[in-house]
């Protein structure tokens, strides 16, 4: 009886409406079972629509997924610094190997301290590296040998390597204290 409106009650004088044997039918065909004499069928004004798809359970599941991902994920922005590759002979080069026949033209040796860098007798704050490295590159800098001192921290190493990466220096060797 889905899709049909049933109005109970006898309509003995349904002039102008089709019907027979005590039934009065308006509009559409009458169901063959489950009817009683005198039922009146009206077509559903919304047409023969199926039951609508229930969106509430779907929304519930989506909310649960959303809460799970919100609680279990970290939006902290991470960056990666390559410290060493297994192909390097000493395991401490962070740059591509040199091309055959091409020797390093200009090498600088830096010692990383706590928040500063020592290059020969000069001492530079690590904040000055972004300005220093381009100037050295203009003079032909190709390789940096980076030594760590006992007071240097991981943050100092990361700061220096970041500046070297951004400055696009061709080669970097990170060298620690012997016998570590």
């Amino acid at each position: 009886m889905s899709g049909k409106t049933v109005i109970g009650g006898q309509m003995p004088h349904a002039t102008g409406l089709s019907g027979g044997a005590g039934h009065t039918v308006i509009g559409a065909a009458m169901p063959t079972s489950g009817t009683r004499p005198g039922d009146v069928y009206l077509p559903d004004p919304r047409g023969d629509r199926k039951a609508p798809f229930a969106l509430t359970p779907l929304a519930d599941v989506m909310f649960q997924l959303l809460i799970f991902f919100m609680l279990s994920t970290s939006l902290a922005p991470y960056s990666l610094i390559t410290l060493g590759t297994p192909v390097a002979p000493t395991g401490q080069s962070t740059a591509e190997p040199e091309a055959a026949g091409g020797g390093a033209q200009s090498i600088v040796i830096w010692h990383i301290g706590r928040g500063e860098l020592r290059a020969g007798s000069a001492v530079l704050p690590l904040d000055a590296l972004p300005q220093v490295i381009p100037a050295l590159k203009e003079k032909g800098l190709e390789e940096i040998l980076l030594f760590t001192t006992p007071v240097a921290t991981t943050q100092d190493v990361a700061t220096v390597i970041e500046a070297i990466r951004v400055g696009e220096v061709a080669k970097l060797r990170l060298i620690g204290k012997p016998g570590l």
């Binding site: 990666l80 410290l83 060493g84 390097a88 921290t153 991981t154 100092d156």
Partner: peptide
């Protein structure tokens, strides 16, 4: 971040024989 750099380099020396590239995660 306040770990001594020497310990970081020693970690590299230990890890590189495993045949993997060693990368440091930063924020």
């Amino acid at each position: 971040r306040d770990m001594p750099a020497d310990r970081l380099l020693r970690t590299m020396q230990v890890l590189l024989p495993a045949g993997r590239t060693v990368k440091l995660v930063t924020l």
